[in-house]
Design a protein around this nucleic acid. Sequence first.
DNA 1: CGTCTAGTTGAGGGTCGTCAATAGAGGTGG
DNA 2: CCACCTCTATTGACGACCCTCAACTAGACG
Lengths: 240, 240
Amino acid sequence: MPNSFIRRLEAFGPLSEEDRRSLDQVSESTWRVSVDHDLVREGDRPAACQLIMQGFAYRHRTMQDGRRQIMSFKIAGDLCDLHSVLLSQADHSITTLTPCTVASIPHSMLAEWTAERPAIARALWLASLVDAAISREWIVNVGRRTAYQRTAHLLCEVMQRLRSAGLANGRAYELPLTPMVLADALGLTPVHVSRTLQWLRREELIEFGDGILTVQNWRGLKRAGEFNPAYLHQVPVRSP
Amino acid sequence: MPNSFIRRLEAFGPLSEEDRRSLDQVSESTWRVSVDHDLVREGDRPAACQLIMQGFAYRHRTMQDGRRQIMSFKIAGDLCDLHSVLLSQADHSITTLTPCTVASIPHSMLAEWTAERPAIARALWLASLVDAAISREWIVNVGRRTAYQRTAHLLCEVMQRLRSAGLANGRAYELPLTPMVLADALGLTPVHVSRTLQWLRREELIEFGDGILTVQNWRGLKRAGEFNPAYLHQVPVRSP
DNA sequence: CGTCTAGTTGAGGGTCGTCAATAGAGGTGG
DNA sequence: CCACCTCTATTGACGACCCTCAACTAGACG
């Protein structure tokens, strides 16, 4: 199974054979973590960045009263917290959504890459810029779209990211998003997410259950979410 | 008048005299722009980054039906769109909120700094990481806080940033935020923002009008907004 | 088989949006 | 100088969207 990190970074520009070998070091120190495991906890001062090789995770913060907001989803190939290299204290937590294969990349190795491997540095920088662009898009999503639009938009985004990462090809694919998790990502309640999903099902845009999402009408789903993938800054990908 | 850009970057770490001289080049090519001027327009492919030397601007996107979401406010010393160095196409617009003094920094100069001036590169990187942290905080703000909390939180954030940039010292300072602008930043309507501001006034937390914000009760405002400045990753600043 | 958690659905309520009216500031022209 | 226009802030009335509470169901697990 190929290194999903390398594949991700290569999407941002060509890497030399030596670059790839250097990146492949990370696959030597991976381990499995179970679901609901905190990779980073708010307040931590980690000495390494966490890389998702396989599985899903999410970045989130919990408030005093227990309400929670998810700020992003992380999929295979995503470096979770590159910012920890310079920002000493984590201002949020990162938790696994499924069992994951994770690699821990010491800050020293990232420093070495940024100093001596410009192609890698560039790709890492680009990845973090896309990350920031996604955050901005979420502000728009939560701030200005209805529950129906919001939900459709999020599903479009995740689907698009999975496809361009080579993790989804057809119309049906594994997506471990429950109404509870979606609610925390969309700024809604699980109850209302459930209703909204029913609506999307009634309109025959999606089938969704047991962690399997089937998009029945991609164009319709995009329209429902006013989804414009420009902010993902990817090379164009065929629609299924 | 000192270069607000240099002062901002120095907050992230010491710069050599030569670094400062190099940065000060930007002050040679500044110009004034009027209020409501687009520094960047969605879809642009700029060859330079825009730096706010003086004044206020905001990053935003307008949707088909005209609804608008502001994603961040930019104050003196902020580099608006560092990401344009690598992301060719702008996925949002940046517009002045007041008349501004702006410097245009060619991508080539940024490339030079990142290649040859590690202290500057580090400071720029840090600035962009704080920027991303603010975006994430806005997701939480819009997603999980009530109008009252949201408004208080935003005022706290802007006040804190202005203070740590040395742009506000006392309790009263210039802040050109109208209910309309606040609404677009908070995911609310101007009508409801107006109501919410009245509430904050009634509680004697703030006085606000004609572009002047006076914080009467900083502690109370922080409590109202559940404001925890950790995400700004600044060295601690005295409260007034 | 009982318990627990999560998904779903319904009923009712609250926050915030929409619509409308008023007032005030700023600009323009007679 | 004042009429006139425009734009925005504010306030009230009403309505919609989404939340809360509750009940029911289904699946996981001991």
